[in-house]
C-alpha cells in the first residue's frame, strides 16, 4: 500500500472539495442576500446533506451527473463539497450576517467607496470567520467516506483516500495498514484542529 499516494489523493480531493464548497456557499449567500425570499429554500437545500445518509447524497451526484463523475477524483471532491456544505454555508452565513452595519456606514461617511470599504473594513472583520469555515470544510472533507465511496469508488492510486483505504484494510484484515493509515488520519486531524483553534484565538491579529 502506497501511503504517500493515498495521502496526496486524500488532500487533492479534500482541498478541491473545500474550495468548491466555499465558492458555492458564497454564491448562495449572495443570492440569498439579494433575493431575501429565497433564504428558506436555500436553508432547506443546504441542510439536506446533513440529514440524509451520505450514500444517498453520493448516489444523487452519480444520477445527476449521468455517471460521468463516477470513479473520478473530481467526483470525490464534489461529494466532499456536498457533505461539507451544511457546515461551511452556515458558518459563512453567520459570519456575513454579523458584519456590523455601523462599521460599513462609518467607512463610507469617511469617504471610502464600496470596494474600499470591503477591502479595508469588511474583509478584515470577516477574515477569521471565512478561514475558519474553510478549515471546517477541510476537516469534514478529509474524514468523508460514504458519499466519496459511492461517487469516486476506491481505486488505488486514483481515487483511494485515507478513509476508503482504511475500509479496504479492515475488509482484508491488514492490521498494520489500519494502524499506519489511522495514525496519518489522526495527525492530519490534530494539525487541522490546532490550526483552526489558533486562527480563532488570534482573530484580528492574523
Amino acid at each position: 500500500m502506497n501511503y504517500l499516494e493515498i495521502l496526496i489523493t486524500t488532500l487533492k480531493i479534500s482541498f478541491t472539495g473545500t474550495i468548491i464548497c466555499f465558492v458555492f456557499s458564497i454564491f448562495i449567500i449572495f443570492i440569498v442576500r439579494k433575493f431575501k425570499k429565497t433564504r428558506l429554500f436555500f436553508d432547506f437545500i443546504t441542510s439536506l446533506p446533513l440529514a440524509l445518509p451520505p450514500v444517498i447524497s453520493g448516489y444523487l451526484i452519480v444520477i445527476l451527473s449521468n455517471g460521468k463523475l463516477s470513479f473520478e477524483w473530481f467526483g470525490g471532491s464534489l461529494a466532499c463539497a456536498v457533505i461539507s456544505l451544511p457546515l461551511v454555508y452556515r458558518m459563512i452565513f453567520v459570519t456575513i450576517l454579523n458584519i456590523d452595519q455601523k462599521l460599513v456606514n462609518t467607512s463610507r461617511i469617511l469617504g471610502a467607496n464600496l470596494s474600499k470599504t470591503f477591502f479595508y473594513i469588511i474583509f478584515p472583520s470577516i477574515r477569521t470567520g471565512l478561514i475558519s469555515s474553510i478549515f471546517i470544510g477541510l476537516i469534514r472533507s478529509i474524514s468523508e467516506f460514504g458519499a466519496t465511496m459511492i461517487v469516486a469508488g476506491n481505486i488505488s492510486g486514483k481515487t483511494q483516500t485515507l478513509s476508503t483505504a482504511i475500509y479496504t484494510s479492515i475488509q482484508t484484515g491488514n492490521r498494520d495498514s489500519i494502524l499506519v493509515l489511522s495514525l496519518i488520519s489522526l495527525s492530519i486531524a490534530v494539525m487541522t484542529i490546532l490550526i483552526f483553534n489558533l486562527i480563532n484565538k488570534k482573530g484580528f491579529q492574523l
Binding site: 456590523d100 455601523k102 462599521l103 456606514n105 462609518t106 467607512s107 463610507r108 461617511i109 469617511l110 469617504g111 471610502a112 467607496n113 479595508y120 473594513i121 478584515p124 472583520s125 484580528f204
Partner: peptide, 20 residues
Amino acid sequence: LSPENRNISYVQQDEVLFDN
C-alpha cells in the same frame, strides 16, 4: 449621493472604531 460623496463627517451615537 452616496455617503462617501457628500463631504460630511459624522460621529454616530456609540460610534465604532476600526478594530483592525
